[in-house]
Amino acid sequence: MDDLQLLREMRSDIGSAPPATLARGRTKLMTRINSASTSGASTDTQGKGSVSPIRFRRRTLLASAAAALLVGGIVVADVVRPMGPGATAEAAEVLNNAAAATIQTADPVVNAGHYLKIQSTNLWGSAAVDENGKEYQWLDTEKQTMYVPANRDDEWVWERSGRIPTTFFDEASKQYVDRIQAGGPEAYVLRGANGAFYGPGSESTFPSSSYLDSLSRDPRALLDDIYQKTSGKGQSVDGEALVFIADLLRTGVVPGDLRAALYKAAALIPGVTVTDEQATLDGRKGIAIGRVENSSHFRQDIIIDPRNGLPLGERQVLTEPRGTMPVGTATSWTTVETTVADTAP
């Protein structure tokens, strides 16, 4: 018997997982990942087979940023580049004004040993199917604070409140959540050098300064680049381009000149309008510009503080009812605020 055979026999008496353990794990997993932003699966099935649900993109700030980074290397030759009139005149004015204001707003400067502190409040839709096939929907809120050290190779700290169920549209869903999440979520803290919260290999999950530097500050070139980076994703090239811009802005690390270029690029996207002049997000007021995605019935908004051009956050709003959620429900939103901290917890 050789060394490998001996090793293979070691602890080979350990049996498979008890079915009950696996079943419990599955329920837990599915509860946490099912999101109303794609729960269209149930509502869209009836008679609308050709309609894709909204793609699921809300998981965490990081995952999304990682996705944005990962598609960066893909170059597709035959990208359709809409050269239409772009946003409405009104939206273009809002965006161009915001660009002018934001470039004058000083970015936080992180000195050696200090941290960029990115506080966000995130709302996500959740959905679950119980053992009888009945579907429930609700909205969860999670507060997060990420501490990014001046030297990215140092340890990052990410405080998360866990997803707290906050909004219900029917009593059945509330009862379901009370039943399966009796104790509520637990807050937890993740740590990792270079943002590798999940171990080696998970480092590059947040836009690095070199990535941010690599993006063009020329609005047209930037938008063309975004079309290329998002090629093949989303329901439409224009919709996905705006989603990309919203995703990048909500990381909270975009420098002023790039923010300005992103706003101006958004002004070039056909279908972008002012969607809400008095938008309120998590108690903060701003102007929302956005674009309706007809094929999947949601609207992507970016909410901007007109006083300084800073992005307050972004949201996705239903343009037709979904399950128990009425038209106008924001099935996901994120607000973000970036400051500097001397220390991390």
Binding site: S12, A17, R26, L29, T38
Partner: peptide
């Protein structure tokens, strides 16, 4: 990526081998 409920299929496929490996 479009339909989260499909992800359960990946769990059904691989959860038991991951479990056994971790248990060992």
């Amino acid at each position: 990526r479009d339909s989260p409920e499909v992800f359960g299929e990946l769990y059904d496929r691989h959860a038991s081998v991951i479990y056994r490996y971790a248990a060992r």
